[in-house]
Amino acid sequence: MKIIVCAKQVPDTTEIKINPQTGTLIREGVASIMNPDDKGGLELALQLKEQYDAHITIITMGPPQADAILREAFALGVDRAILLTDRKFAGADTLATSNALAGALRNLEYDLIIAGRQAIDGDTAQVGPQIAELLDLPQVTYVEGLKYDGDKALTIRRQTEEGYQLLETEMPCLITVLASGYEARYMPARGIVEAYGREVEIWGFDNIAVDESRLGLKGSPTRVHKAFSKGVKAAGEQFEVEADEAVGIIISRLKQKFLI
């Protein structure tokens, strides 16, 4: 089985803070990490490799420093890593990103493409399904469990608001995975050292057969009109009193507001 994992390097958004004076994001010193859902997807791929001797290729699109997550993937056990990077891809929205990634994927063999459900910097959950469409593959999103029949079919557990669905699909297909379904393993120390000796393939515009008009900012149907930080709501009243008095205050306020 040939598996391709699509991953993204993201800022650790749980560490981003807002400067209360200027209302702007403080990005300095915020670590870059492999997107958590993508890491869950990589874990699933590694489990399939252990069970079925699958071959894993990881691909990421991003600036040259995204190399770091590919090294991490080598340390964990992937067989091949591709960094898709080109100035012509810059400023891409989800569709233009998907056009570039689908272009690269057309050059590769696969039975299963695994992406994370969504990235923590954008939270769009769009690139997986868009790639699936561009490659004319069936898709299953929100995957939290998977069984392979050893041949061509997958039985997939998909999370829903009410519970879950069990779905059956044939390969090749694309799935998007939840981090909560696959807890990522730790990197073995030996793997970390070896990862830096491995070759990351660098692909650019010339490696994919996609028209320039469908890439980067030019190929993006959506544009950012403006970006802003949310104004902070005026704080209400605050009390630092004994528990008993606090209870009295809460009850009196809720009565005033007709909430109880």
């Binding site: 800022p11 958004t13 749980t14 981003i16 803070k17 807002i18 994001l25 923590i120 910097d121 954008g122 939270d123 149907p221 959506t222 544009r223 950012v224 009109h225 403006k226 970006a227 802003f228 930080s229 949310k230």
Partner: peptide, 16 residues
């Protein structure tokens, strides 16, 4: 919201 709710972005799709 973007960046985990740290930033708001207004998006348009003028030509499509």
């Amino acid at each position: 919201p973007a960046f985990g709710g740290n930033l708001m972005a207004t998006i348009v799709s003028k030509q499509h």
